[in-house]
Design a protein around this nucleic acid. Structure first.
Lengths: 226, 226
DNA sequence: CTCCTTATCTACCGATCGGTAGATATTTGA
DNA sequence: TCAAATATCTACCGATCGGTAGATAAGGAG
């Protein structure tokens, strides 16, 4: 809705024949917005087409079917997020420094890509395992990768020993829920969560809270020894 | 699917006239399962009817329309969860004791009610504000109540000062995501998250992690003063 | 200029959706 | 016992869904 509302073709024709073709990435962006807003089942191809200023038939001409379009939206988001995570993780510094870098990167990514968190949550939460296997596996393997990373850090003593899966799932929840619940969050904070200032604030909060989650067993131990 | 599968009427009639009427709570339970599995848009009344062993027309006779049925499912879950929270919070002990009690109660509730977390997440994440106002407001006010609770505790010095909204949202994510992503969680942990032993394990993890989230600023401060 | 490819549209199809109508049988209560 | 209320079913309706067919026009290559 931000870009080119209502019959927003690049050039208007009497009957809409090819003018300058609508860029594919613009279609994917519109689809992401609608899928994020209504969920996979609730999003109709007509909605997405209207959002991009084309017709349903044209949309299907480009993507084949609804599922392929959805998959393209999701792999776009997951791909960029994944390379962001890898970039942060392979950077310099000790465990906590790299952990902070990844956390900040994830927050900035989710803040800069409205709807991304909601898509990931829907995929993470989906139970009809058979319907969209590849995408679901991609999400699952991302969490599994995070879990393995944490386990390695525990092995090398950089992180207190604890169940890495429980920790990974808690971290995923910490990062995703805030942005996925964008409207509730915004209602509480009186400001759009995607505003730069709030993204910075969340980045700071996540840094402190993410570390606390990782180091929680150590704190609990100190507390009991007090 | 657990109870009375495939034509599971209490008494089978040639044409299904009223035998012993299917209890309303059983219908609500079936509806919860289907709504949780497929989401509001993805769940069809025929699915729910089949799950309960009645026909769509009978279902509509009892609940009027789809939205009313959904609202009944949601208010049932939210009502029981809410009274559980209030019970834990008005119990004895200092802030951390009551906080732990609520956290453990929430975990046990979500563990004992498969699908509940998924429903709450869908509602928390929904963006089409106008569609289901009441239910959405109920979820939102629950988070807001949690936020106010935390703010009070900060006011009285029981909790380090920090943005109560950011903390409330993080806590909600911590509790909900794990159970909402039940299948991914189960895949990681190699066991159903609703199994009693895993619920206990999660309860322990959440106790440590929930406290760490609350006290995170204090830890960060100690760390920087080191 | 002429074809061929491509992007787009209008018009339509079968399936499914939420919801309604009306018949039938059970239960209940006077 | 009998009538009113209730629970359930089958059959159907209009709307919408994802997807297809076919016509039309623009752009590019020779």
């Amino acid at each position: 809705m931000t870009v080119k509302q209502s019959t927003g073709r690049l050039k208007t024709n009497r009957t809409g024949r090819p003018s300058s073709p609508v860029p594919r990435e613009l279609l994917v962006l519109s689809a992401r917005r609608v899928f994020a807003r209504a969920g996979y089942a609730g999003a109709s191809l007509s909605d997405i087409a209207a959002e991009s200023g084309i017709t349903k038939a044209t949309l299907l001409h480009h993507f084949g079917d609804k599922e392929s379009l959805y998959r393209e939206v999701l792999t776009d988001v997951l791909g960029r997020l994944g390379s962001m995570i890898i970039g942060g993780w392979t950077g310099p510094g000790d465990f906590l420094a790299r952990f902070d870098a990844v956390g900040a990167g994830v927050t900035r990514f989710l803040g800069a890509n409205p709807g991304a968190a909601r898509l990931l949550v829907e995929e993470l939460v989906r139970s009809e395992g058979g319907r969209l296997g590849p995408a679901r596996e991609l999400v699952e393997s991302t969490v599994r990768g995070l879990s393995r990373l944490l386990a390695d850090a525990m092995e090398s003593g950089e992180l207190p020993r604890q169940d890495p899966h429980q920790l990974a799932l808690s971290l995923a929840g910490l990062h995703l829920t805030y942005f996925a619940a964008a409207e509730v969050s915004a209602a509480l904070l009186q400001k759009d969560v995607h505003a730069p200032s709030l993204v910075s604030a969340r980045e700071a909060a996540v840094k402190v809270q993410g570390r606390a989650l990782c180091l929680a067993p150590r704190y609990a131990e100190n507390r009991s020894r007090r």
